[in-house]
Nucleic acid binder design. Structure first.
Lengths: 115, 115
DNA sequence: AGGATATATTCGGTTATCCGAATAAACGAA
DNA sequence: TTCGTTTATTCGGATAACCGAATATATCCT
């Protein structure tokens, strides 16, 4: 029988929470891009839409995903809504991921099918 | 007109790479769990299957996703295959994510629909 | 109130991902 | 080579996520 010192039920629970709060938001590359854009400075929805050349409803939907996870904050200003990153640390984490595979992953990936 | 100092074409490209190499692998909670399991120690496929109580073909499919991105390495030993983490740093990154929303995200998430 | 602007949500339809079951492939032992 | 063991892959079918278009909501101004 296999054994582990990990508390699997608890870890599973925590990972589900992690996934729900953060990883889910990173499913779409465009959402990561929006995070970087907001990492530079706060933006209005139409600015994001313009800069990325993406229809406004699509941007709003992606922002809703980030908002629902508390990754961005909003401040209404008249008819506009100003979005900012809740926690800039997400950018460090994303940069850290990029460093990780820059350093090592590429050379070690096998050549089997990449789904 | 909105402007940004970000090099959007280049950033978009880099984010696509990031997403393809890492974020995609984090789409499924069970894959994150497998990463943690391998973070503790290397494992054979059937051990993972046993410990997580998941059918072996399902485990193999998830491992294939991780393998295709170079996140895990394999070493065949007879009929068995031993899996290890390519780069334990992924665990630090995941832990970092957990710390991030533990500290801040929960209190700031609004109550709109969380997709 | 009525119109203009900015943002959010809903609605169908398409695509992608996932799972379980069955099968295939790799290897060792007899 | 044949069998048993372990792992990998394939094949539907079900589900979930995504997008564009249309619509709804919120706010301000006259």
């Amino acid at each position: 029988m296999s054994e582990t010192n990990l508390n699997l039920p608890r870890l599973t629970e925590e990972i589900n929470t992690l996934h729900h709060h953060i990883c889910y938001a990173l499913r779409e590359p465009v959402r990561i891009l929006i995070l970087y854009l907001l990492g530079e400075q706060g933006r209005y929805v139409n600015e994001i839409s313009e800069l990325l050349d993406i229809p406004q409803p699509t941007v709003s939907r992606h922002l809703a995903v980030l908002r629902g996870r508390g990754m961005v904050r909003t401040e209404r200003q008249g008819t506009s809504v100003f979005y900012t990153l809740s926690n800039p640390h997400i950018i460090h984490i994303l940069d850290d991921m990029r460093l990780m595979f820059d350093a090592e992953f590429d050379e070690s990936a096998d050549d089997s099918i990449v789904v």
